[in-house]
Design a binder for these strands. Structure first.
Length: 750
DNA sequence: GGCTCCTACTTTTTT
DNA sequence: AGTAGGAGCC
């Protein structure tokens, strides 16, 4: 016991050993948040206050959940598999599987990811003859998910105009469609689970009786529904231990509600908030920068990070003429860091938006520095994997129209648009699924239905259809039926293998010229199934499909190598690195232009900046470029306001080195082309791109930083006219872009 | 049914 | 700049 808690600081100790009561822990970046959470679980169990059975621990990402389980397992010699530790969605899925009948779901209900959901909505809108100019599918999707995340069904959404009424109508049809197919989207997992507990008193009391302690990680990221779910589950008995950091709330844009922290204080009668402010990660200068920065936000719960370690190095700032120069600066610095012995995997290149990675990748590629970009296409979202999963879904649940439509004619088997439309009409008439419509139409001449399995089996053995596949709908029905038969008897990896061959998916990609990678991914799917069977408690096909939907991000290829880490600031949350490069610190980019019009947008951007800064342990680089290629256009930006919010005393401005990268002919020829950065040490290569022209009034140039008496700092982005008519277009930080007559506007070069 | 061309889009993202 | 998805043509 004492070993568990001996190395905790007083606040951590207080949090870990708190008696049975609800508590809010404000845990700053690097303050040992995960450690406190897991140690508390271990402490509660080891001191006999609760059995593993009585613990419910919730996180947002699978990665965090896994990390939690690993840490608990390292502290306690218990089997963690029976514990309810997981993501909101994972736990709700678990609950709904256990009570699928009470929840009104088929046993093998399938989970739609965002792309699946969008496909269902598109199909629905089309069937309803909706004008997709007026009602873009994405917006409908957004509307539905928002409503669900507020805990509202179509019948409960209040509408004040025709547009909203139309949206609600789509929502209602969407609900019906999902119910018909036995599929649920992500938000539905939460909402169903919530409704199940609301309606079913017996179950509610069962779970309330079971969970003595509910622990929540990243509490600031919970949405309204998740909060309601927690409240419902906790009841009056359970102690809810919520850990979060309002300063690291960066997901308001997708429904996270920091207000939950304040509600929590009230609803759970929290008498005392424990603050973890001692930081074990970063040196003083980095923390001071983060603290001063975040103080510009209003309505914070308030917290100041400190460290017992020294100030460390100053924060390095680099002002680059162009994004290319910025990238080559970073490359040079990375090289010298590596020479100093910092391993590449401990260096992160962070940026606000994914589009910024390209120029960095290019420079890294040319410098032969290994790197890994996070946040690309996920394994389970790849086209070929989606196809394969669609077959598997049909095996598990043939009513899944979405899956059926994806592969009814892939690989092609002569089912054209017309046949599909006929089937859809038929399904519409029957009010059932497409599969049911097929059965209706082909009953008698094709193997179909629960009792026709034997027939299919005989057919399969006597005349293997692989040699002579039946075409058309009849062939498709026979194919799926035979797969369903065969798969009942095989272990999961062999089911996948069988499906890949007999669906002819494997053959299709084997024949495809560029299909090698896809084929490899399909093989990887068999591997994924194999390891799933070894690791999971439940190794059924349905469980595997849930895993594929809920943990799509987990299965990322090519991890572990010694490589630089490239990612957005969002995906860096929770991670730490020896050295961090934060590039693109420009107004319009970070803070992003689009956030300026949103309520609280800039404050969220500032929290994002706070997250970025606090990722660095020892060294932090901040850089910006005066001109940048974005969406095919050169943009001229002024330095980010966040840069000015960090005290100058913490910063060290680096001089532009005499090595300047210029673009040559090859530069834009693509990632794997022969593009090359030319280094010309000591040569006076002009730092500015060649496309900058002198304006009429020659003292002003495009790209020049200027100051305006009223609008403040800006940068000239365009100019026109001669003599007294000369006008310049200036982009200012707050005011946006303005055309100014040089004769009147009091501009000073900055 | 599949290919090519054109257009529209481009903040952040987990489940 | 780059790409994804749709329309239209063979």
């Amino acid at each position: 016991m004492s070993a568990l808690i001996s190395e905790l600081n007083p606040e951590q100790l207080e949090a870990v050993t708190l008696p049975h009561q609800s508590a809010l822990v404000l845990a700053g970046a690097g303050s040992g948040k995960t450690r406190v959470l897991t140690t508390r679980i271990a402490y509660l169990i080891q001191s006999g206050q609760v059995s593993p059975h009585g613990i419910l621990a919730v996180t947002f990402t699978n990665k965090a959940a896994k990390e939690m389980l690993v840490r608990i397992a390292s502290m306690l010699p218990i089997d963690t598999r029976g514990m309810w530790v997981g993501t909101f969605h994972g736990l709700c899925n678990r609950m709904l599987r256990a009570h699928h009948q009470d929840a009104g779901l088929p046993q093998a209900f399938q989970i739609l990811d965002s792309a699946d959901q969008l496909a269902v909505i598109k199909r629905l809108l089309k069937a309803l003859g909706a004008d997709d100019e007026k009602f873009p599918p994405r917006q409908v999707q957004w509307f539905i998910n928002n409503a669900k995340e507020e805990g509202l069904r179509a019948s409960q959404v209040e509408t004040y105009d025709d547009f909203a009424r139309k949206m609600v109508e789509f929502y209602r049809f969407y609900e019906q469609q999902c119910n018909k197919e036995g599929v649920v989207d992500f938000a539905e997992l939460l909402l169903r689970s919530y409704e199940l507990l609301t309606r079913n008193e017996h179950l509610r009391e069962h779970y309330r009786g079971r969970f003595d302690h509910v622990l929540v990680d990243e509490f600031q990221d919970t949405n309204r529904l998740q909060y309601k779910w927690l409240k419902l589950l906790a009841g009056n008995r359970a102690a809810v231990f919520a850990v979060g950091d309002d300063d690291q709330s960066i997901y308001a844009f997708r429904g996270a509600n920091t207000g939950n922290m304040k509600d929590f204080e009230k609803d759970f009668r929290i008498s005392k908030i424990i603050k973890l402010e001692q930081n074990y990660r970063s040196h003083g200068n980095i923390l001071d920068a983060a603290n001063t920065l975040i103080r510009n936000n209003s309505g914070r719960l308030g917290k100041n990070l400190w460290t017992s370690e020294g100030h460390g190095e100053p924060i390095r700032v680099y002002n680059a003429p162009t994004d290319f120069d910025e990238a080559s600066f970073i490359v040079e610095e990375v090289k010298s860091l590596r020479a100093e012995g910092v391993v590449l995997s401990q260096i992160a290149l962070l940026y606000r938006s994914n589009a910024q990675s390209r120029v960095l990748e290019h420079a890294l590629f040319n410098a032969s520095l290994p790197y890994r970009v996070y946040g690309g296409m996920r394994f389970f979202e790849r086209q070929e994997i989606k196809h394969a999963l669609a077959y598997l879904r049909l095996i598990a649940n043939p009513e899944d129209d979405n899956a059926l439509l994806r592969i009814i004619n892939f690989p092609v088997r002569g089912i054209g648009m017309r046949s599909v439309e006929q089937l859809q009409d038929e399904a519409g008439r029957q009010g059932g699924s497409l599969w049911a419509a097929m059965g209706h139409k082909y009953r008698g001449d094709a193997a179909f239905g629960p009792n026709s399995g034997d027939k299919a089996q005989v057919r399969l053995e006597s005349k293997p259809w692989l040699d002579k596949p039946k075409k058309g709908v009849e062939g498709f029905v026979a194919l799926i039926e035979s797969m369903r038969q065969v798969c009942e008897k095989l272990p999961l990896p062999e089911v996948v293998e069988h499906m890949l061959e007999h669906s002819r998916l494997a053959a299709y990609y084997r024949a495809e010229r560029e299909g090698a990678d896809r084929l490899e991914n399909l093989n990887e799917l068999i591997n994924a199934a194999t390891s799933f069977v070894h690791e999971a408690e439940d190794d059924s096909l349905t469980a595997f499909l849930s895993h594929a939907s809920l943990e799509a991000g987990e299965h990322q290829a090519g991890g572990g190598q010694e490589a630089l880490q490239l990612m957005t600031v969002h995906s860096a949350k929770g991670l730490e690195f020896h050295s961090v490069f934060l590039s693109g610190l420009e107004e319009g980019l970070f803070p992003h232009d689009n956030s300026r019009n949103e309520v609280g947008g800039v404050e969220e951007e500032r929290r994002l900046m706070y997250v970025a800064v606090t990722r660095a342990r020892r060294r932090l680089y901040l850089s910006f470029a005066q001109s940048r290629m974005l969406h095919g256009q050169t943009r001229y930006n002024i330095p980010s306001r966040f840069l000015h919010e960090i005290p100058d005393s913490l910063l060290k401005w680096l001089q532009p080195v005499q090595k300047v990268a210029i673009r040559n002919e090859d530069w834009g020829t693509g990632r794997k082309g022969s593009g090359r950065v030319i280094h010309e040490p000591g040569h006076g290569v002009p730092a500015r791109p060649a496309d900058i022209r002198d304006s009429a009034a020659s003292q002003w140039r495009i790209g020049q930083n200027v100051t305006h008496a009223r609008f403040g700092a800006g940068v000239i982005v365009n100019c026109e006219g001669h003599g007294a008519d000369s006008r310049v277009e200036v982009r200012f930080g707050r005011t946006g872009t303005k055309w100014l007559l040089l004769e009147y506007a009091k501009l000073t070069p900055a």
